[in-house]
Design a protein around this nucleic acid. Structure first.
Lengths: 193, 193, 193, 193
DNA sequence: ACATGCGGGACTGCCCGTTCAT
DNA sequence: ATGAACGGGCAGTCCCGCATGT
């Protein structure tokens, strides 16, 4: 059981994130200063930076990657790397998507619009490449640094990113899980045109 | 033929870039301020920003993407998209690489090391995705926004980026054109492991 | 004649200094933030730091050293170094003291009280040592770096500093020029007890 | 004999100082944060500040002044103040110098280079003036606040400081005790040029 | 007693908009 | 009309003190 201190930290973090998203939704990202966010959450600016190393993190923070990794690792060994990823991602989305759909949509829209966030998003993409490389490498008994393994991871990350953007541009009309499945199937088939 | 004014602008730009790279090589990117660069080039800080919209651009500025696009568009129509890109990139590299190898190596090393530059690099990658999507779309008679086309572009960009990093990590031992060709061949073959 | 721009700068600098001293006199140095000073002078905090590299400088800024140096250099060549300094300082004080006595008293009181200012004051003393070494060296046809020259300068600076403090501690009862003359005469005589 | 608790405290202090100097030697003073030092010594930041009231103290902390005072007080009463100080300092240096020469050299080099440390050093100089004034006053049966006494102390402190710097600038080629003796002899002789 | 958390202030660096000088 | 200077504003880092919890 977490101590009182731990719980308070959790609460502060959540308050900061909530107030930040509220203000940003109202005024836009770049017109919302860290000072305003801190004020709304009733903490000082230094406290903000103790919780989030940079302004962007208050928007981007999430824990989807490790969870997705778990789902991929659970797939039967005889599946090809691309097939395993496709199924693992589908399972992860089934777990996350119903509850958080709207929040993800809002955040991704922000990421696409604001240059700063966009830049940071691509850095996260790099982290995704690393995670995927580890997973794919582990399944195949190859090191994560193996060029072939990293190429697979990079192609996957690229396709996933572009598919998320496709989803947002379409206004969320077609649902993300279905779009992702189509995209990964396309990649699995060798990207024919 | 460029007028005297044009040539002077060109000179200022080159001086800025040269002095910037010199200072950065000596002190590191983040420890080199724009003020120092401007001083070394004997212009004011505002002039710096007129030539380069942000500090990162003084390192990242190049014109490889459009040139690569031209080479891809020149490929015979019966080639598959991936095959056409593979050949086009090879031709572009043959043109650029011999003369500029060392400078590209130095700059990419910086990009990998410095967080700010890394973030910016991924933004450029996004531009590359757009460029590739246009080229691939044009060749196939499809719009650049077609999801399938964009997936191809994104996978290509991911693979190219990761291959460049592979090249730098290896210290440039194996040459970039050969690494890129291997990588694109792998993608063409459906990324088997 | 100074341009309009130059005069405006001068005005801003003076306003900042005046407002700073006013606030500090009222609230104390450490309880006066730069933000308050900037606000009172109706400029931004960044402007404050463009005029004064650190908070302490707004109190310590003056131009007495070079003026004193001029007066010393004017002394007849046959005077010993200590004698020349003694006379030069007396002349400089005659020029400065009548008009600025009270302001110097207030500022020195601050310097003695506030640890930050004290620290900075000793740095200025170091500058005085350098200035004196140059002047004494020039007069004697020796380099400013000559150890004997620097020792003279250092002893002078030490004695002058301690004399200024003596003046302030006495509440300004005995006047500074007279105290300084006594002190330098003592040093000239070999500091007998 | 110190209790176990006392010894542990001593160990923590030494660990902090050792780790601090190691990090500072590697990265420079201003680029080494208190957080890093605390981490390297495996204590919290607040613990650091319990042992050293400010960051600078971890470099400057030493106990030479009181020891020097003792040696001066031991000198025969018939010696003039300057002569007594000269001999006392020589004896103190004979005790300290052989073992600690290199560490003093390294620390003084830092003090000369880093602005923050420099400022603090001059504050220590002020403490030296006070100590010397007490010693000289005691020997002469005069109060430490006597202006003449303080002038002697100030001149001595100035000369000693400048001599230490001379030693460091010369790379330690000529040894400190010999330089100090020359300097104090010069002062004793009335600083002729 | 001891660590941790948080506040707050100094300061730096990037970048922008406006104003002045040529 | 082009370039430089100037001022503003915000992000982010670091030091350090006080309060709060363990």
């Amino acid at each position: 059981m977490p101590g009182l201190r731990e719980r308070k930290k959790q609460r502060t973090r959540e308050t900061l994130q909530r107030e930040a998203l509220r203000l940003i939704a109202a005024q836009g990202y770049s017109r919302t200063s860290v000072e305003q966010i801190a004020e709304a959450a009733e903490v000082s600016v230094s406290t903000f930076f103790r919780y989030f190393p940079a302004k962007e993190d208050v928007v981007l923070r999430d824990d989807y990657d490790p969870m997705t990794a778990q789902h991929i690792l659970k797939q039967p060994a005889e599946l090809s790397p691309l097939a395993a990823v496709r199924r693992g991602v589908a399972e992860a989305l089934a777990e996350i998507y119903p509850a958080e759909r709207d929040q993800i949509l809002q955040r991704t829209r922000l990421v696409m619009t604001e240059p700063d966030l966009r830049a940071r998003h691509y850095q996260e993409l790099q982290a995704l490449v690393t995670t995927l490389a580890e997973v794919v490498g582990t399944r195949a008994g190859r090191p994560a640094g193996d060029p072939a393994v990293r190429r697979i991871a990079a192609a996957l990350a690229g396709v996933l990113s572009v598919t998320t953007f496709e989803w947002v541009e379409g206004g969320g009309a077609e649902e993300l899980p279905s779009l992702v499945d189509t995209a990964l199937a396309h990649l699995e088939a060798g990207l024919p045109l």
